[in-house]
Each structure stands twice: as C-alpha cells, then as structure tokens.
Design a binder for these strands. Structure first.
Lengths: 228, 228
DNA sequence: CGTTAGGTTGAAAAGCATCAACCCGTGTGG
DNA sequence: CCACACGGGTTGATGCTTTTCAACCTAACG
C-alpha cells in the first residue's frame, strides 16, 4: 500500500498539499475499496463518516427529488474527491453516491481528516480550495441549466470533453449516454436527438466516439441566442 | 463604527466564529458602503480584492453566458456573505454582483481575511463551513432545475419563503418578480402564469403578498411526478 | 439463440418561450 | 393638478422545444 499511496498522492491535490506526517497518518487510516458497477457507495441522509477519493472508474452523485425524479448532481473520476463537506461535518449525507462503473475508491475516515486538518494548516487550506473548486463546478452547471438550450448544453459538453487530433477534435464519451443526459438535465431521447441535430454541423458519432470536424460551427452555436 | 460592528457580528456566522483579536483586526480594515439599486458591486472577471457581507438589502450574483443570456446564480441578503471564494483566492471574479435593491455592504479586504484566517483556526474553520453551506444551496438549486417543472419550482419557492400565520401560510415575495423568475430559471411571463395556475389550489396573490390557504395541496403538487 | 440493457427513431402532447398588446402604480414636468 | 412616460407585471395567441409513449434496433452475454 505504501507505494500505491505515493502514486495516489500525486494525483490528488488534497493529499499533495498535506505535509509528510499528515500524509503518513492518512495513509494508515485510509482504506481502499472496490465497488462494482451500480453498487451503492452511500445513501442520501445516511450518516457521513468518511470522505472519498476516486482512484479509478466513475462515481455518480444524485438526489431523489420530492416528486420521485432522480437528479444527477455530479460525476467524478480519478483524482477527484467527493463527500468532503458531509464527511467533515459528520452530518447526514446531502446526496447519495453510486458506482457508475466498476471503481476503486480511497476511503478516508472523517475523524482522521478532521484531526489532520487541525494540525496541518496546508491541508486545511487545501480543503478550503477543494470546496471552492466544487462550488465553481456547480456554478458552471447552474449557468448552463439556466441560460442554455438543451442543444447548446450538449454542444458545450462535447467541447468541454474534446481532445485535439489531426483533423478536428475528438471526444470519447466518458460514460453512458443516459448519464450524460441526466447530467445535462435532459432525457436520453433528447440527447440522442440533439446529437443528430449536430451532424449537419460537422459532428460525426459512432458509438461513444464523437468527431468534431469543424469546431467553429459549434462555437457559433454556443454563442447564438435562443431566438436565432 | 464600534457599536455597529458588534451588532453586525451577531448576524454573521463568519464574524461570530472569529476570536476577539481577529474580530478587532477585521473591524479596523472593514469598510462600509452603500449601493444604489442597480449599481454594480463588481464585474465578472475583474480582480477579486475583497469579500462582502450584506448588512441590508439584496444583492444579485450573475453571469453572462456565451449566448448572451444573463444567468442569475444567487440572491443574498442580510447576514449573508458572497464573493468569499474569489476573494480568498485573489483570482478573477467568477461572477458579477449588482445591487438588486438599495443596500449596505461590509467590505472586507481579502489580504486581511487571509491573514486573519492564518492566525485564527476558528475563522479558518468557519470559512470552510461557509463554503460548505454555499455548496448546499447550489446543490438545492441544481436539484430543482434538473428534476422539477417550472410550476413545481415556483411552488417550492413559495413554500421555502412562507411564514406561518393564523389562516395558512403567508409569503412576502422578497424581491421583484423578474428576479424570482430568473432565479427559478424561467421567464417572467411563465412565473406569472405559474402563479395563476396555483390559484385553484388555494393560493391568492396581491402585489407581493401571497397567501397559501391550503399548504397540503402544494405539498401534493411537489410530490406528484411530471406525468400526473 | 434468446434475452436484456442501452440507445435510437417516430408521432403526438405538454410545457415554456416569444411576441405583442395592455394594465397600472409611480414619478416627472408642464 | 393633470398629462404623460416609464418600469414592472399580466394576458393572449402562436410557435418552438422538450417530453412522453411506443416501437424498434443492436451489441453483449448467458
């Protein structure tokens, strides 16, 4: 576990910020656990006793709204933490977490993190920045939900996940389409139709690989108001 | 200012958590400022040099999306802070802030807060909790936006702002309707129509006062799925 | 092979937005 | 003191967007 932990540390801003002693302390108390796809990591409203770091795979955070719909709040992958706020507060979980794919998580018991933060100012500060970063992501989501059409949100999602290749951009859809749809706040059918509507703009889709032949067209789409 | 500051402190979780010395230090560096309705407090992308606390009135936080729409991210009032994350990071503002009504703000220079947090663990922890609380509110917003219809969001907004009176609940709409609409992610016309649609459920509207004669009906509305 | 989960497609309906007209308090200037 | 303009809000007609429901496809798996 020692070597593994060193590797893990490199990919996690929180652990990088911790001093050597803090890191050693967290290493000893941390548990590594594998989850199968679909497995529950924790339930909404359950007592939070730990913070989680994703080592591999995808985790979805969600809530069941009063009307019974599941609202997908976020999807996290390698190097990202989740459940920090509830864990540190030791409160009831403000959302549930499921394994969206098979995944490996590092589980850090809340009391250990609290104790570590109390003695390590660097960690304390890193926690604050981690929280700020989480807030930033949520603000981005809200901006998209309130001011962009479904088509624009799909296009923005593609652009955000695109990598540069020889001819245009390539996107490897990171997880299943029904999760992408839920993340964007639309139904799977609408996502499918939105992707079709992008084809005339030079977007080709085959399975979970999307090619964007002409990024400028998408840029124009994102810039034009709903009326156009 | 000394007496005023003591009063202010009582209404602000952040200042309450600070030790006496820290508080005195912040008091000396804090500036009080009045803003007129519509006045800009800071612009999106401007350099953040302070954190703000609302003493009186309403402040709206917003972003202009790439397509030109303004996305209302939040509205804050007495006792609430905003711009903490950007202020502490000293980064570019991740949103703009305007006075939604005439308002008084306490402006805390970022360097002072940073220095205060470095020496006062209580303040440091309070900052973390303030950030967590902000995250909670954003998660609530996202849940509503992704899983509730416009009508349900309006009903939920009313319930969230209602006070108990002799016959049913009373809501005093806290700010202008076009701001409520923007907050809920709908157009003013849709808000107006949604309120009309609630009338048969025992909701009466006169100006900015809403009476909910039969809260159970709204509860049922919030619980029923979109299909019903 | 048959089954199943994830995805796509089509037709119809619902939900919001848009545009335009209108209403009504408020404040202003003649 | 009245006329007028103005901002905020409402209402109606219409159209676009997204959902719903159903059928269907296809790759993966037992």
């Amino acid at each position: 576990m020692t070597d593994t932990f060193a590797l893990i540390t490199r990919s996690c801003a929180l652990l990088r910020a911790a001093g050597p002693q803090t890191r050693e302390r967290l290493r000893r108390s941390a548990r590594l656990r594998h989850y199968h796809r679909g497995e529950t990591i924790f339930l909404h409203q359950s007592r939070a006793q730990a913070c989680h770091l994703v080592l591999e795979g995808w985790v979805k955070l969600y809530r069941i709204a009063p009307n019974g719909c599941e609202a997908l709040l976020g999807i996290h992958t390698r190097g990202e933490t989740f459940g920090l706020a509830d864990g540190l507060r030791g409160a009831a979980r403000s959302f549930g977490a499921d394994a969206a794919s098979d995944c490996d998580l590092l589980i850090l018991p809340a009391p250990e993190i609290r104790a570590a933060a109390a003695t390590d100012p660097g960690l304390q500060e890193a926690l604050l920045h981690e929280s700020f970063a989480a807030t930033d992501r949520l603000l981005d989501q809200i901006t998209d939900l309130k001011s962009c059409s479904a088509l624009q949100r799909v296009a923005a999602f593609l652009c955000a996940h695109a990598c540069v290749t020889e001819d245009g951009l390539r996107v490897i859809l990171p997880f299943e389409k029904h999760l992408i749809a839920a993340y964007l706040g639309i139904k799977p059918e609408s996502l499918s139709r939105a992707l079709s509507r992008l084809k005339p703009l030079g977007v080709t889709i085959s399975r979970d690989i999307v090619l964007i032949r002409n990024p400028e067209a998408l840029d124009v789409l994102l810039r034009e108001e709903a009326a156009a």
